[in-house]
Amino acid sequence: MEKSGKKNNRRDFLFTASYTVGAVGIGATIWPFIHQMNPDSSVKALATTEVDISQVEPGNSITVLWRGKPVFIKRRTESEISEARSVKLEELKHPEKDEDRVQKPEWLVMMGICTHLGCVPLSDKGEYNGWFCPCHGSHYDTAGRIRKGPAPVNMEIPKYEFVDNNTIKIG
């Protein structure tokens, strides 16, 4: 067992190197098994949806599915727009201008998901004539901003664009 110190160092180096390389290998092996649970390429390819909005009358809204979640597309009336724009920012829990939440004042495009715990709010309900979430009682106004209840922020605006006057592309 009496070996020179140099030899001992080499042995230690060998073992350390083996452990290190082995650990790298295990790490690299684990990654595919984790990554396989991420959205696959067919799911990612469905990232955009085009919606025909020519049939939506003022005051009505449609709900479309995008990435497995509902998106509200609301054609707002003049009074709803002015109601949304007359609110003072200081009164809001999550201050955002209505102008910043829409591309065209008439069309509000918004994820139909309550920011509290992910339920779908009901249209034209609640104390602010916007949306009301039945799960835990969050009230949203006609711009989809949180006004009362446990939800922390306004309903999310997805990335979208107007392809033409009758078509919206979400995503």
């Binding site: 595919p32 098994f33 990554h35 396989q36 991420n38 696959d40 390429s41 067919s42 799911v43």
Partner: peptide, 13 residues
């Protein structure tokens, strides 16, 4: 075939 084509590293697994 979906596993082989679309799932991340599905072909490998």
């Amino acid at each position: 075939e979906h596993i082989m084509r679309n799932v991340n590293y599905g072909w490998l697994i």
